Amino acid sequence: MFTEPETWVAIAFVVLMVLFAWLGIHRTVLTALDHRAQRIKAELDDARRLKEDAARLLADYQSRRASAEREAEEIVTNAKAEAERIATEAKARMEDFVARRTKTAENKIALAEAQALADVRAAAAEAAVTAASTVLSQSVKGSVADDLLTKGIAEVKSKLN
Rank of each mutant, 00 (worst) to 15 (best):
S139W: 07
R65W: 08
A55M: 05
R39G: 03
P5F: 00
K80W: 05
V29N: 01
R101A: 14
D119H: 10
A131G: 08
A125L: 03
I40A: 09
V156Q: 02
I40M: 09
E126T: 12
A90L: 14
R85I: 03
T3Q: 08
S143M: 10
A87G: 06
V129P: 00
K157Y: 02
I75W: 07
A72D: 08
D119K: 12
N107T: 12
L44P: 01
R85L: 08
A59R: 06
A10C: 07
A112C: 01
A90H: 05
E106L: 10
L111S: 11
D34R: 05
W22V: 14
S67F: 03
T130A: 15
A116Y: 05
D119L: 14
A123E: 14
V144N: 13
A10W: 04
A154P: 00
A105F: 07
Q38P: 02
A112M: 06
A122H: 11
A10S: 13
H35R: 13
A105L: 14
E126I: 07
K151D: 12
A122E: 14
A54P: 01
E52I: 04
L19Q: 12
Q115H: 13
F20I: 10
A125D: 02
R39S: 08
E69A: 12
A32C: 03
A154E: 15
E6L: 05
E126H: 11
A12I: 04
F2W: 10
D147Q: 15
S63L: 13
V156I: 15
E89T: 06
A123W: 05
V135Y: 13
L23F: 11
I75S: 10
A118S: 13
S137N: 15
T31Q: 11
R36W: 06
S158A: 15
L33G: 03
A124S: 13
A79Q: 12
A72Y: 07
A112K: 08
T134F: 10
A116E: 10
K103T: 11
L44T: 04
R121Q: 14
V156G: 02
I109C: 03
A87H: 05
V18W: 02
A32Y: 00
A59D: 11
K103E: 15
A124Q: 12
T31L: 05
A87D: 12
Q62M: 08
K80H: 13
A54C: 03
V156W: 00
G142L: 06
K80L: 15
R27F: 02
V29G: 01
E69P: 02
R93K: 08
Q38N: 14
D119V: 04
K91A: 11
V129L: 08
V18H: 02
L33Q: 06
Q62L: 10
Q62C: 03
N107L: 14
K151C: 06
R27S: 03
D147I: 09
R27V: 00
V15S: 10
A59S: 10
E95F: 01
K151G: 02
L16E: 09
E43D: 14
